[in-house]
Design a protein around this nucleic acid. Structure first.
Length: 261
DNA sequence: GAGTATGTTATATG
DNA sequence: GCATATAACATACT
């Protein structure tokens, strides 16, 4: 599911569905999903609290409680969904929250890479986890400065949540494709102009995806994500999309459009 | 069975 | 200690 645009969709859903509701019961079905907090402290801190909103920093989601924050990271396969009264919980539900009106919220996560926890403030959480600024909020100047601080491949830098928070494997490929930059280009060797282009494309790509509710098929023509597959032709003409590994992650790019500088 | 998957982090290495 | 690279986590699907 989850890179910044997908998490933003979940945030909106959570806010729509949960705002104003009070959690009266918590069932932790799989304790492994709790991070940095014991089951008893988690339950005690959440039970009886009202949800007053939902926030996001990069891929990290926060349910704003009347006091404190319930932190949610969706990992690879996490999702949240509201259950109507009596509705069966999904097969990989890891935690169930019951509200005062008997509806329930399920945290579902087959692969269990996600995490639930507590934080006293978003700033605290961001600091503690050394997260970089949100990919949609970072200024051009700060992005360039941060990218210049690493000699790794630019794609690895985009994926590093300590540099900026929110870009994952798919949107990193898309942003570099739109910027016409090779994923293996050394971050600190890219001209400032190229880094500025990447900054602009990261926001463009993330915003475009949010605009279509992360339905890739609804993206405008010319987006790699509409058909991200090695061997398929680049719509710009010459190239054939190629697959390589960068930092252990599958990377699709067009060798004709994205030349190594 | 092998290979792959939208993420993070502990561990290894230089 | 720092920057970087890699393995490991758990499950489903092709």
């Amino acid at each position: 599911m989850p890179e910044l645009p997908e998490v933003e969709m979940v945030r909106r859903y959570a806010e729509e569905q949960c705002k104003g509701r009070t959690i009266i019961n918590v069932r932790v079905l799989d304790e492994g999903i709790l991070v940095g907090v014991s089951r008893s402290v988690f339950v005690r801190s959440v039970q009886g609290r009202q949800i007053i909103g939902a926030s996001r920093h990069g891929k990290q989601l926060f349910l704003n409680l009347r006091k404190g924050f319930l932190t949610v990271h969706l990992g690879m396969t996490g999702d949240i969904l509201m259950l109507e009264r009596g509705e069966r919980s999904p097969s990989h539900a890891r935690t169930l929250f019951t509200f005062d009106d008997a509806t329930r919220l399920a945290y579902d996560d087959p692969r269990k890479f996600g995490a639930l926890g507590l934080a006293s403030s978003m700033a605290d959480f961001v600091k503690e986890h050394h997260l970089g600024p949100d990919a949609l909020k970072v200024s051009k100047k700060e992005f360039v400065a941060r990218a210049q601080g690493s000699h790794r491949a630019i794609k690895s830098v985009l994926l590093d949540q300590h540099v900026i928070a929110g870009v994952g494997n798919l949107y990193a490929d898309e942003s570099l494709f739109q910027s016409k930059i090779h994923p293996l280009a050394a971050s600190n060797e890219l001209p400032v102009e190229a880094l500025e282009r990447i900054w602009a494309q990261v926001r463009h790509v993330l915003n475009a995806s949010i605009r279509v509710s992360t339905d890739f098929q609804m993206l405008p023509e010319g987006f790699l994500l509409r058909s991200r597959a090695a061997g398929s032709p680049c719509h710009r003409g010459n190239g054939i999309f190629q697959s390589i590994k960068v930092g252990g992650r599958t990377t699709i790019f067009c060798p004709a459009c994205q030349k190594l500088i």
